[in-house]
Design a protein around this nucleic acid. Sequence first.
RNA 1: GCCCCCGUAGCUCAGGGGAUAGAGCAACGGAUUUCUAAUCCGUCGGUCGCAGGUUCGAAUCCUGCCGGGGGUGCCA
Length: 632
Amino acid sequence: MATESPASFDPIELLGECVRRAILAIAPDADADPMISAGKRAELGDFQSNAAMPLAKRLGTNPRELASRIVAELELGDLCEPVTDKDIAGPGFINFRLRARALTTLLARLDSPALGLEPPAQPATVVVDLCGVNLAKQMHVGHLRATVIGDALARTFERLGENVIRQNHVGDWGLPIAMVTEKLRVESGAGRLDLDSLTLDDLDRLYKVAQKECAGQGKALEIVAKFDLGPKIEAELRAQHEEAMEHLAAAKRTLVALQAREPTVYAIWQKLYAITMGACIAACRRLDTRITEAASAGESSYGEELPGIVADLQARGLATESAGALVVRLDSPEDGAIAEPCIIRKSDGGYLYATTDLAAIRRRVQKLGASRVIYTVDARQSLHFRQVFAAARKAGYATRPGASEPSILEHAAFGMVLGEDGRPFKTRSGENVKLSDLLDEAVERALVPVAAKDDERAQSDTEPPLPESERRQIAEAVGIAAIKYADLSSERIKDYVFSFDRMLAFEGNTGPYLLYALVRIRSVFRKAAERGVAADESLPILITEPAEKALALELLRYPGQVRAVASALEPYKLCAYLYSLAGAYSSFYTACHVLNAESDAARNSRLRLCRLTARVLEDGLGVLGLPTVERM
RNA sequence: GCCCCCGUAGCUCAGGGGAUAGAGCAACGGAUUUCUAAUCCGUCGGUCGCAGGUUCGAAUCCUGCCGGGGGUGCCA
């Protein structure tokens, strides 16, 4: 939505307006998309318009000729160097070169407190569903992605001035939780377990035991019967099966007791909840994500709403009975032509996670007022979300009171984390890797170069080595930034290979590289302060060197890139931008000396460029949720 | 079976109708009296999975295959 804003800093927007006017002068009826982009060939121009080709196609004219007419109509003011037919290239590209004066004007506009991202007059409410831990289970790489990507998206909307509500949809309900609750009840009742000294590791272990105890042998029995493997095996399996069925029955009774808030069972469940959430919130804090217990809305919080949802859907004829279960059919084209119906109640009367998710959509849209709900959940659940979204729209749960259109429901799906062997990231024994172990290892590995670098510096420097505690702090930030950046820097949907070596490399598109770029800028300012030099913000930024120009053009792209993340729900776009900005800064830093610049004016200008770069980097890293350091 | 996603340089990834397909890593060659060389500059490297089609123009859109992954009515 390119609004006409004389104070815009964005050359693409400003140039687009000029070209749009020129096109309208030639073809008043044309849908005049100016198609401005950064110049594909830097030697020909800073920006280009590709508008002539598609327009010529529609008008049935020659594209180069049309480009020539557009050029003749162009009124660029003092934005660009004059454009002539010589700037038309190939089939009809029009190349533009920004005027040096215009560039400094635009930079000055960007250099405002908001960095070109003014909050909207009417903030929208955006709900981000993220993290998604389960009770009694350790967090692992899957939660890492759901947490890190979700928080980065939430931060993006916060930066844009929207009202963001994070929702940690905790898996705290249902039969699996009842199984482990039952297990705890039995074990503590028999005096084999002290509920007050339980750890998450204990719970994780007991969860698996409980799962196993409740797993029937139905499949195996079928096979035995089919192939007639003998009465002895069958008897053995049948005994096992019956035992499992008893465990299962007990778990189901516990589920009922839990849902009725029966005091003994509920107290055990609360313990379970407290231990899991304590560990989860600690991990989220260590990961520098803004996820608090207050931002949690567990599945259990929807429990009481489920019968009402089902009754409502049934009463309105949206849910129908099928083989004893209650389903919402979605196979008509207006529902999205989804072949598989959405099951909202099992034939035994129990509810499913689709039911809970419907209740969650209703609360988020109708009670919290979300105009957009984003689910940062792994890609394997995409069918589930297609179903639930379609069912919610059909039922009107996705529409705010008084609104004519349903809110936007989006599944920000992400791919799997793979080990370096290309298979799902697991320990050698096939277990999930504990998130906390992963973070510890990243930090330990980061400490090695941090310490080595500091030793090296201390040898040729008057300042003594940093204390161990500070080195650890730096390594913590570097390690966390490395892990988070690896998770954020490619398209969400793609699986990615988890490699400490790659993410902690200080070369290339990594978190540490970005941190280092910022460290170098901060160091310039420390040195400047030592010499009693400070940037005078009232004096102009002067762009003369190619490296200065390249840096300036990069800086101007920042606000657009943040918006691009919000519209595509793709944090990697900001990663790529910041990497490119850090690279432009490094090249500038090498080519243009700041403190020993040729003149006071140049030094001041470069200090201002450094300041602006630092502010954009800090802002962008903040949007991604990456910690920064003063030195490394 | 059906549905969804992915396939671009040796490796990790951008680009999603427009110019000679770009980065990083790896390899190789350079750069440090000066602000952090965890850096910078350069070289090398690609029948964009395959085959058709649409188009003045296709890595990009359409169809069909091939390869890999995931999902698929009563787990979450």
